[in-house]
Each structure stands twice: as C-alpha cells, then as structure tokens.
Design a protein around this nucleic acid. Structure first.
Lengths: 370, 370
DNA sequence: GTTCATTATGATAGCGCTAACATGATGCAG
DNA sequence: CTGCATCATGTTAGCGCTATCATAATGAAC
C-alpha cells in the first residue's frame, strides 16, 4: 500500500461535526490561521484590508472559535468556583446568570457548588483548591465568614465576596452601599409625608442588617425626625419573623403610617398582616422592602423596594477575579478591588402619602429630634 | 548551540499553573499516559495491579483531567443551549442547577440563554444552531410552542422539552404526570374529609393546566363527589389572578372547605384572601398549591403542594440529549425518549380536616355524582 | 539605495488529552 | 513448542487553537 497520509484530506477521521475551523477561515480568506486568530482576538497589528477579508470569511462560514481548543492553547485557564449556601432561589438564579454569562464570554471555567455551611465547607474548599480552583466567589453568608475567607487565602486561592456586609482588605468584593440604600429608601418614605416610620431589622449576624438600620436612623435624624425605639422591631429575614415584627409594630399607638422592612420577605409578611387587620396598602399604610426578589413583584400590591444589581455584581466578580488571577500569575501583585455598584429604588405600588395628615408637605429638614 | 529539545524539561514555557497532567501521573505510576487515560475513563482492559498503581499516583498528585484537553481530543464535543423565557427565579435556578451539574459531569458545553418569546426567538435559535449548538433544552413555555420545536428540528438540531404539557413525538421530553399529580392531591384533600373543594385553573394556553383540571375532576368523580362548576374558577398562574379567583370561590354558598390552586402563587394569593376574610388556614379552609416553588415554603402557613423534581428533570434532559446526539453522530437513528419522572406530594401546614363536619370519614368511594 | 525600526504575516511547536493502530505479553489448542 | 486468539500496554498522530519566534513587507532617516 502506498503512503497516502500526506494527501490533504478535507476532514480527518477524528473530526466530528462540521463546524468550520480556523483553518477553513484562513483558506477562504487566503491567509494563515494565525492571522485569523489575530483578527478574532482583536490584535491591532493586522492590515485593515486583511482584517476585512477575514471578517467576511468568518461571516460566510459562520465560524465560531472552539472554546476547548482556545483555552487549551491559551494556557492560562482560569477556574473559579461559585460556592453558595444561601438557598434563596431568586438570588441564586440572578447570581448564576451574571456569573455564567461573564464566564462564558471570557472563557473562564465556572464551577457551581452548593454547600452547607459548617464543618464540610472547609473540606470542600480545600479539595477544590487543591484540585486546581484558582478563585472562590462567595455570596452571603459565606462571604461574611472570616474563617472561610482565611482558609481560601491560606490555600493560595483568591476569595471574592459578592454582597458582603463590609469590604475586607485582602480579598476582593462587590457590594452595594447598604447604608446609603436604606437611607435613600427612608428619605423617600419621609418625602412622601410619613413621620412615624417603622423599621424591621434583618438577621443581626449579617452585617448588612446593621448598615441598613444605620441608614434608616441617619435618614430620620437628618430629616429632624425622632428615632422611636418602639418603631424598630427585630426580624431575621424570614416571612415568619416579618409577621411577628409587623404585628408588634402595628400594635404601637399611634400606629406607624409606614413600615420599612430590611428585606422583601419580611415586607411581604407585613403586607399580609396589614391586610388581615383590614389596613389597605398603601392607602392606610406604606410598606417597603429591600432586595427586589421575586416575591416583591409577585404579591399584591407589588412592593416598592431596593434593587441590588446582583447579576452585574456576579459578572463583575468573575471579571475582577480573572484579572487578579492573571496578574498574580504574571507575578504582579495587585490588590483586588472592592467595588461598590449602584442600586436602584424601584417604586411600585406599596407606597403612598399617609392618609389622614398632609401637614408638612415639604421634606421638613428643619427642627431637631426628640 | 546544541539541541536540548529532547532533554525532558519538567515544565515547558507554555505550561501555566502547576496542575499535574496525565504525563505526571504516568511518570509516577511508571506507565504510559495512555494507561492512565484508560484508568481514568474506566477501560476494563487494565490489569488490576496497574490500575491500583495509577490510582495511587492520581491520589498522590491530586490529579484532575483537564476538561478542555479532554473535549478537544475526545472530538465529540456536545453543545447544548438552555433557552428560557419563563422568568420564574425558583424554577430557573433549579433548572440551572440540575443542568449545570450534569453538563459538568459529562463534559458537555452548556449555554444558558435568556430570550423573549416572539419574533426574536427564531433568529436566536437559527444563529445558535448554525453556530454549532447540537441541542436545545426547552422549558415552558418554549416547549409548548410547536413553531419553536419545528424550527429546531428543521435546523438539524435536537429539541428537548422539559416539563411540557404533553410529550410530542419527534423530540424528546421529560415531564411529570400532571393529571395524576392533580388527581393525587385532590384525593388527598378528599381523604382529609373535604367534599366541597374549589379549584383554580391555570393559564388555559398551557397544556399542563388542562391536565391538572382533568385530574381534579377525575378524583372527585372517582370519589363519588359531584363536580360543581361554581367551585371551579379560571386563573392564569399569577398571584393577582389567584386573588380574584379565590374571592369568587370564597363567595360561593355554602363556602368550599378547601381550595386547590394549580400553582403556588395562586395558592398563596388564596391564603392571603382567606386571611383577609379572617378565615384561618388550615382550620377554616385548606389551601393546596402545585409546583413547590420558593413561595410555597416562604409564606405562612407553608403550603402543601406538589413538588416537581425540576433539578432531576433538567439533569435527565442533558443526559438524554447527549445520548441522542452521540447516537445521531454515530449514524444510529434513536428516537428520543419521553420520560415521566415521579413527583411528590409535599405535605406542609396548609391542609387539615374540615372544621364543622366529620361526617363520612371514610373516602366515600360509593355513590355516583350529580 | 542602504540601514534601521516598525508593522504585517507566516511557520512551527506545543497545550493535555484520546483514537487508532502497533506491539508485547499471556494463554491455550493442537 | 508452534500458531493464533486475547488481553495489556505503548506509540503516534492529531483535536483547534495560540505563543513564540522568524520572516517579509513597509516606511522613515541618512
């Protein structure tokens, strides 16, 4: 038999699909595959004319680079694990969407890992880190756990907190300004004309809770409204706790005309309790939430709330992590960023001016408090 | 300069991290990398002794195969797009978890794509298919859209429906038996002693709605209970529609002692309406839902509902799609399966025996209906 | 036109793995 | 002990892409 191995077969045995390769594009554009690669990756050193030819060829063949090959050849594959303990579905799906999208875009291998917090976590993290995970993306409550953060660092991996209570130093983080958001929401309620505004605190262990409470207090003080302790009730972010807290709040005399809960579940519970007492929302009482979870826009009336850009946050996290990891590999020492992303106050149907009293229409920025 | 290229350098220039490769394992286990590959992939033709040595080496080095390299070399890379339009977060996150996990396990490239249903979808699908996507995983409402299904098939890709109203022929599907689930739930309520059981129908376009209604009717009939049209109200799966429907139902005289809503949002709305009318759930009225979304276990009382194994369903879908795609490539013609996965009736705190009447404790399988 | 710096393109060699084939070891019939 | 099937292992050649270096084309300066 004669040697036929050098005859250029269009498709080798091992080729599978019919997806065009970089070589196909190169052939059509009459250049080397390297040039195609340059065009695809935006290398500036390609003549405009060549670039156009390559672009046309890509278009014609409907070429898309093979990710596996790319990351193999590229060499600096980045592996990030997204660990989560918080089972809130709406939070999680937003988080996933942002992270997946960015990971896909930047050819980053993203592992999604559920884990129960506790003893197991450290084992899991250790295994993952030794298994080649370069970075850990940590949403709450994991990101508020210093032990977890330390463990990740000690394993030489990068920890990145998404939505932590406060930005810590050594690792990176993205978050919103909880204080300012709560301040804004409270100010919004005040601007509506309310003076007796109840507040439901979140789980005390989560630092965000404290910041939100502080924002509420600061807004009242800045508006010259006395902070009444009876109008502040402890909750724990659950619906049940929101029911108990709002029952307490609604029993206070005179009744508050607005209640600002530290998250949407507790706000939803407040609406339910108000309804049971035949109080209309918002004409009898304004109820505002925080987080803009699915609950907020499901119930009726839909809640005015603070929207965290969770999707952007997780996308940001992935991008920032990749940057840091690459820099680390290159030998540079970059200190990871601690970014603050903008929130939005989403106004829906659960807030209104208080019913009885229209005294002091202006924001009342004048007198001192109690 | 002398040729040094054959000197076995431990790390070439292009190696990046320090992750061990198959070659490292082979060296340590004193065999060829091919043998390691065989062990990793479970090829039976490896002597037990060798296998043990390789296993030990893998353990020692903490070796994990490089996915990119694997799928590059393996050749038959499978690319699946998960298209979704339904923005329900809890559904989505479950769906994602299952799909991601399975995709990860089986080295399948999963693309997650949000899309608005309508004109755009066909463009998107066309682009994806021409861009090398082999299969489309379609949750509702996409999977009930025959045009979408047809388009995917016509592009030579595989369509796979997750939770469609009915199993269609040409493409694959996973679903639960909506009829049977609704039948079971209704029977459960009947077994509790209820006779006047209201039902809230889902969106009429979704085929599942019809099946659930049929299940409800059948259970009543089989129990010898007359189906009363006044006790059946149309909803559309939203909270708002659930409120309107349950208000109608609760106004019927004599009042139903139980209401079975076709999904959890409408059931939650029913609870809210009942509470507003100072009806206790479940002592005054039993309320049951369907789907076991996050809402079901958030509100108080937590809802008795039907749990779809969404995670398992999406994992199943990925696995089944991979199988079919591989078979197709191999030239076999497999007709994709239409699987029915088991649901569970999750009993929580929103159901109880009816208050006043304990007549007919037994299921009453006797007399004919109206 | 030569020289050098710059820019544009190409050739080559892998990235880490597995398919396909080749070879070596083993067993068992004759 | 030869012959042949069977099992166990090794060799080789890619998968599709990019890093790296080499080379060719271009322009600016002398």
């Amino acid at each position: 038999m004669t040697d036929a191995s050098h005859i250029p077969t269009t498709r080798s045995t091992r080729r599978q699909g019919n997806a065009p390769t970089i070589a196909d594009v190169a052939r059509l554009a009459d250049c080397s595959s390297m040039t195609v690669s340059r065009v695809v990756n935006g290398d500036p050193n390609v003549r405009e004319k060549t670039r156009a030819r390559v672009r046309a060829a890509i278009e014609e063949l409907n070429y898309a680079p093979n990710r596996a090959a790319r990351s193999l050849a590229g060499g600096d594959q980045i592996r990030i694990a997204l660990l989560f303990d918080n089972p809130s579905a709406s939070y999680l799906s937003e988080l996933l969407m942002g992270a997946l999208e960015e990971a896909n875009r930047s050819d980053i291998h993203l592992m999604v890992q559920s884990c129960e917090i506790g003893v197991e976590v450290s084992q899991l993290i250790t295994n993952l880190a030794r298994g080649g995970i370069n970075g850990f993306m940590l949403p709450p409550p994991l990101c508020d756990d210093q032990a977890v953060l330390d463990l990740v660092s000690s394993l030489g991996a990068l920890a990145f907190a998404v939505g932590p209570g406060r930005a810590a130093g050594s690792h990176g983080s993205v978050m919103i300004d909880d204080f300012k958001a709560a301040y804004d929401m409270t100010s919004h309620i005040i601007a509506l004309g309310h003076r007796r505004i109840g507040f439901i605190i979140g789980k005390p262990e989560q630092i965000a809770s404290v910041n939100r409470l502080k924002g509420y207090r600061a807004a009242l003080e800045d508006a010259g409204i006395a902070v009444v302790d009876d109008l502040i009730a402890q909750g724990s972010f659950t619906y049940r706790s929101g029911m108990a807290a709002s029952e307490r709040l609604l029993a206070v005399e005179p009744r508050p005309t607005a209640i600002f809960a530290s998250n949407d579940d507790m706000a939803a519970a407040t609406v339910a309790v108000a309804h049971r007492q035949h109080l209309d929302v918002p004409s009898d009482i304004t109820v505002c939430g925080f987080d803009d979870t699915e609950m907020a826009s499901t119930i009726w009336p839909e809640l005015t709330t603070i929207r965290q850009p969770i999707r952007d946050m997780s996308a940001y996290a992935v991008k920032a992590m990749a940057q840091v990891i690459r820099a680390k590999r290159a030998g540079d020492t970059v200190s990871p960023e601690n970014a603050i992303l903008p929130y939005t106050l989403v106004r829906r149907d659960s807030d209104a001016a208080p019913a009885l009293t229209l005294r002091s229409v202006q924001p009342a920025n004048t007198a001192g408090g109690a």
